[in-house]
Amino acid sequence: MALNTPQITPTKKITVRAIGEELPRGDYQRCPQCDMLFSLPEINSHQSAYCPRCQAKIRDGRDWSLTRLAAMAFTMLLLMPFAWGEPLLHIWLLGIRIDANVMQGIWQMTKQGDAITGSMVFFCVIGAPLILVTSIAYLWFGNRLGMNLRPVLLMLERLKEWVMLDIYLVGIGVASIKVQDYAHIQAGVGLFSFVALVILTTVTLSHLNVEELWERFYPQRPATRRDEKLRVCLGCHFTGYPDQRGRCPRCHIPLRLRRRHSLQKCWAALLASIVLLLPANLLPISIIYLNGGRQEDTILSGIMSLASSNIAVAGIVFIASILVPFTKVIVMFTLLLSIHFKCQQGLRTRILLLRMVTWIGRWSMLDLFVISLTMSLINRDQILAFTMGPAAFYFGAAVILTILAVEWLDSRLLWDAHESGNARFDD
């Protein structure tokens, strides 16, 4: 018995066209964080690309023209004298008006014999932002004059995390709450300039795509075929072959399989920071003279006294001054041990922890910024005066060393310790 099946006739004509040209192939790229070699397709503007294995951002879609970056830099340069030299806060102490600005706080630190601690604050609040705007201006002028731009481009990517104007702005709020127990506070004209400078700096850093600047100024022929001998440069993120001198053909720094002496430098910085954190938390970090009496505060006791007036601000200072430094030390110690013992479990967790400490590390400088600003506000000789204690130097040095330890660690070593050939990683 035959089955009668109805015929289905399409209502619209289906047209099949042959592909007349070869589909576009992607360029081969190595991930600078996990060293995976993959094919990167062509990316349009405002599109980002991520590593298929570790999800690290390979290409950032946010990109401004150099002219727009230069305009932002010149605007920031105009704001800087007002943000640093004009009063941020006014207080009335014992019937006398006192003005506080950024430069005055750094000068008070240096004047009291601790120039190293003052230079830490100076670099993060004044030096690094000033280098940022002058570097962008150098790129703008240098591109037109045919100057060598490689050193500036190499420095810009590392400079971003040292620009800490946003953290200093939080420190202004913390210092205001600490001082309000002794005097009446009012915002100064410099505060508005400083807030504007923070906003412009944040926007500029978020749109400063150094890798795209490398592509514009020093374009290189990408690798179009897969080759395990391809290496990625950690300076400019170019994937290719080393030249005859073993250097990256684009930025001219040595092109090595792994960062040289990464573990040794990381261990040295980490152990030194552990040693410095002990006096930083045991010795007094601030000293207040009130009517001839002397009151010393460690980091913890200062947080407890701050909690009596504002528990939320005390929580912020606790996280930045105690929780973050010790968390960074514990995480980095764990990561280094996992590399030495070739741990194969929990790779995803370790990668996330490394990215976390990379982002939060700079916030530990908050305590030094609060001390710097408070020193310029309260300084009335023996009637009422505020000065920093010996722990300030140890704390600042420990924070900087932990930042350097994270920067010096080559994250690809975590993958080397893991089993080879993993296309995915999980716990």
Results as ranks from 00 to 15, higher is better:
V198L: 14
K178N: 14
I299M: 15
Y50D: 15
T9A: 05
T110L: 05
Q186F: 09
S321A: 05
M164L: 03
H207E: 10
F192L: 14
G188S: 09
R380Q: 01
W64V: 12
I322C: 13
I58S: 13
V125W: 01
G113D: 13
A137L: 08
Y182C: 06
H46P: 07
R150V: 04
R62K: 04
R259I: 07
I126W: 07
V152R: 00
R250S: 13
Q264L: 04
R59N: 09
Y138I: 08
I172A: 06
I287K: 15
T134K: 12
H46K: 05
L337Y: 15
Q264T: 05
L257H: 13
M365L: 04
M72E: 06
H261P: 01
P249L: 10
F82H: 06
A280D: 02
L200P: 06
L384F: 07
S286Y: 01
A392H: 01
P284E: 08
I177H: 06
L282S: 11
R158C: 14
Q104T: 09
R294K: 09
G235K: 03
Q104D: 10
I167E: 08
C236Q: 00
H340C: 10
G396N: 03
I360W: 11
I319P: 08
L354E: 08
M1Q: 00
Q180S: 13
D426H: 13
G396P: 05
T15E: 08
E157L: 15
V313E: 00
Q220V: 13
R256Q: 04
A391D: 01
L373A: 04
L69G: 08
I96E: 01
N101M: 01
R380A: 01
Q220K: 14
S193Q: 04
L404R: 04
L282H: 11
L154H: 11
L323P: 01
I106L: 06
L368T: 07
I199P: 11
M103V: 04
S135C: 08
L263F: 10
R380S: 01
R97Q: 03
M76T: 05
M120C: 04
M76C: 02
D367M: 00
S176F: 08
I96V: 07
R245V: 12
D27R: 10
Q112I: 07
D427I: 14
A314F: 09
L337Q: 10
G188V: 05
D181S: 02
Q220W: 09
R59S: 06
L79G: 03
C266M: 09
P242R: 14
E161F: 02
V329M: 08
I116F: 03
M304A: 08
G361F: 05
T110A: 08
Q104W: 03
V16H: 08
A196I: 15
A385S: 10
L277Q: 07
I91K: 00
D114M: 14
G188W: 04
R158M: 13
W64A: 15
L132E: 02
L353M: 14
D114F: 05
L78F: 03
V152T: 11
P219S: 14
R144G: 08
G20F: 05
F369R: 00
I351T: 10
R216V: 11
Q33S: 07
Q180T: 14
R226P: 14
I185N: 03
A71F: 06
Q180I: 11
N422L: 06
A392E: 01
Q186V: 11
V198W: 15
L271F: 12
F82W: 05
I131Y: 01
L154Q: 02
G293T: 10
L409T: 07
K57C: 07
A70M: 13
P10V: 07
S338L: 15
Y394Q: 02
A128M: 03
F82C: 05
D426G: 09
M332Q: 05
S338H: 13
L255E: 09
H237E: 12
A183S: 08
V210E: 12
K13C: 05
